[in-house]
Amino acid sequence: MQLFPCPFCGPRPETEFHFGGDAGNTRPDAAASDSDWTNYLFFKHNRKGPTREIWMHLTCREVFLMARDTVSHEVSATEALGGEA
């Protein structure tokens, strides 16, 4: 069982967390093109190695940013989003 550090609750079991996608994937304007919406909704960086992702801690319902490595599974940092998505 791996522990992920929730910025609000501290280290918690990985099963309490839900993956929310790439960090920085911002919602386009309603008038944006189909391609922009497609990219936003479906297309991923899916990086091998260091990556920055949005996660939710299901028990406290807070959404936050996690920097981790997708090969070693090491978590280098987590931080609250501070208002910006």
């Binding site: 069982m1 791996q2 990985e14 099963t15 839900h18 993956f19 899916n46 091998k48 190695g49 992702e53 997708t70 090969v71 070693s72 599974h73």
Partner: peptide
């Protein structure tokens, strides 16, 4: 449920 390239299970 954790995206991974690790080729090992949790």
């Amino acid at each position: 449920r954790v995206p991974s390239y690790g080729q090992r299970g949790n």
